[in-house]
């Protein structure tokens, strides 16, 4: 059976869930553990990607370049990678980051805006990085529209195109349809990134693999924005049961999740009312903790704020609009 590449983002998407508070000691332990367990790709940056440390998305406790430097020596076999959202980070940031000897970069745009990443993808390819085009909030457009956008990346020669269900809003049949449309229409492989807001992260990831996805994003314990991502140690075990080759020592990965990641979690990665609302209303998962803050600041239910953000079709990165919506709601009260 085909080889499935597990792409770990515990130290990128998972960074949202710990409010970007990773320390050098923590990333050394996680990165070293993942590498030893045979995970092929390890991603590390602020949750909103390179340059994300800000008022809008929350400041990193430790500069992401220092974290990358700490992780680098312990990542011996895996590719150490970063994520960047053009508009938040720039080629200049990438240039500086390359000093940390990263191997891979994923360039993320909203699902309809792939062309804003063209210059960054060209730069990454030219500099010999494993380069991924990453489309966010893919629930918002049809499989055909998605294919058009993915082709922009494919034509640039990316190593694969990743589809992110950033709101955890998609149902398994939608995942199958979108992934298979891209698998059939692109020359490069396809990947999938789930959020567990509707408790479908595992089911959707399996649906993606069965539709031909060769890369799947995971995090240890599912640590991530909203209700978290697809739980890596579980997916590796399930894929093993299904007969897929992942190259992962599932016992070692279970130990990383239980002994290293779980103790540093700020809260259990459950589906509460607000994270359910992210999935239900189709809202960007990393809005969750910011919505809690705005709810407290303006004395409003977080659920109502999130629902309104969904109604207004806010996209990834628009954390500032949480305050906008909450302020307006508080004035109307």
């Amino acid at each position: 059976m085909a080889k499935i590449n597990i792409y770990d983002t515990t130290m990128r998407d998972g960074s949202h869930a710990v409010s970007h508070s990773y320390t050098e000691e923590q990333v050394r332990a996680i990165a070293g553990g993942l590498d030893e367990a045979g995970v092929g790709f390890i991603e590390l940056t602020h949750g909103d990607g390179l340059g994300g440390s800000s008022y809008n998305y929350g400041f990193s406790k430790v500069n992401e370049l220092d974290l990358l430097r700490a992780a680098r020596p312990v990542v011996k076999n895996a590719k150490l990678g970063i994520l960047m959202i053009p508009g938040v980070g720039t080629i200049e940031d990438l240039e500086v980051c390359r000093e940390t000897e990263i191997d891979a970069v994923r360039l993320a745009t909203h699902c309809t805006e792939a062309d804003v990443a063209i210059q960054h993808i060209k730069y990454a390819k030219k500099n010999g990085l494993f380069t991924v085009g990453f489309l966010m909030m893919v629930h918002m457009i049809s499989a055909e529209e998605l294919l058009e956008q993915a082709k922009i990346f494919d034509d640039l020669g990316v190593d694969y195109v990743n589809l992110a269900d950033s709101s955890g809003h998609m149902l398994p049949h939608e995942v199958s349809e979108k992934v298979s449309t891209l698998v059939n229409g692109l020359s490069c492989p396809v990947g999938y990134h789930a959020h567990n807001n509707l408790a479908l992260a595992m089911g959707n990831s399996i649906a993606a693999v069965e539709a031909g996805a060769q890369y799947v994003d995971v995090t240890c314990r599912g640590l991530g924005a909203g209700a978290g991502n697809c739980q890596g140690e579980v997916l590796a075990s399930v894929l093993d049961m299904m007969g897929y080759e992942t190259g992962i020592d599932i016992y070692k990965l279970q130990d990383v999740a239980e002994e290293i990641v779980e103790p540093l979690m700020h809260r259990p990665q459950t589906i509460n009312t607000s994270s359910l609302m992210l999935g239900y209303a189709g809202v960007y998962s990393s809005f969750l903790l910011h919505a809690y803050k705005a709810a407290e600041r303006f004395d409003l239910p977080a659920r109502d704020i999130l629902f309104e953000l969904g109604k207004r079709k806010m996209v990834g990165g628009q954390e500032d609009m949480i305050v906008d919506v909450a302020y307006e709601m508080s004035q109307k009260r």
């Binding site: 508009g87 804003v116 207004r312 996209v315």
Partner: peptide, 8 residues
């Protein structure tokens, strides 16, 4: 500075 494009 951050820029966001929204297709709504």
């Amino acid at each position: 500075a951050i820029i966001i494009l929204n297709p709504a």
